[in-house]
Amino acid sequence: MTTVVEAFATVAAQVVEKFVGRNGRVRGSSVVHAVHPERWLAEIRVPAPACRVGMAGFELDALVPTDDAVTCARCLQSGQHSTVGRVGPRQLPLWESD
Rank of each mutant, 00 (worst) to 15 (best):
M1G: 14
G79W: 01
V64E: 14
A9S: 15
R86D: 04
A34Y: 02
A12Q: 08
C72S: 09
E43V: 08
V46C: 03
V46R: 03
A73Q: 11
L92K: 12
R74K: 12
A7C: 02
L76V: 09
Q80N: 09
R86K: 07
V20E: 08
L41H: 11
V70W: 08
S97M: 11
G79Y: 01
P89T: 12
D68G: 00
T83Y: 00
G57K: 09
P93V: 07
F58K: 07
V4Y: 14
Q14G: 15
P37A: 07
L92E: 14
T2V: 15
E59N: 12
R45I: 04
S29V: 04
A62N: 13
H36G: 10
E43R: 12
K18G: 05
V70H: 08
L92Y: 11
V46Q: 00
D61A: 07
T83H: 02
V26E: 00
C72W: 02
L76W: 05
T83E: 05
F19M: 05
I44M: 06
G28V: 09
S82F: 04
R86Q: 15
G79Q: 03
T2M: 15
L94I: 11
L94Q: 14
H81A: 13
S30H: 13
H36C: 12
A73W: 06
V64K: 04
E17A: 15
G24H: 06
V31D: 02
G24D: 04
G79A: 02
V87C: 04
F19P: 05
T2F: 15
E96M: 09
V15D: 01
V84P: 02
G54R: 14
R86T: 14
S78G: 09
T71V: 09
R22C: 03
S29H: 13
P93S: 07
R86A: 10
E96K: 13
A9W: 02
V16F: 01
S30N: 13
S29I: 05
L94S: 13
G24T: 06
T71Y: 03
D98A: 15
D98I: 12
G85P: 06
G57A: 11
V31F: 01
T2K: 14
R86S: 07
L76M: 12
A7T: 14
E6D: 15
T10S: 13
P93Q: 05
G21N: 01
G85K: 06
V70M: 06
K18P: 00
C51M: 10
L63T: 02
E59Q: 10
A7I: 09
W95I: 12
A7Y: 13
R74E: 12
R74D: 11
G85W: 02
D67L: 09
R74G: 00
V32T: 04
E6R: 07
V31H: 00
Q77A: 15
K18W: 06
R86G: 08
H33W: 02
T10Y: 10
V87G: 11
G57S: 11
Q91N: 10
V53E: 08
A13H: 07
L76I: 11
M55D: 01
R22P: 03
W95N: 12
H36P: 00
C72K: 04
T3E: 05
A13C: 09
A12W: 07
M55I: 15
R25T: 10
Q77S: 13
G28A: 09
D98Q: 12
G21Y: 02
L76S: 13
V35F: 04
V32Y: 00
P49D: 05
Q14T: 12
S29F: 08
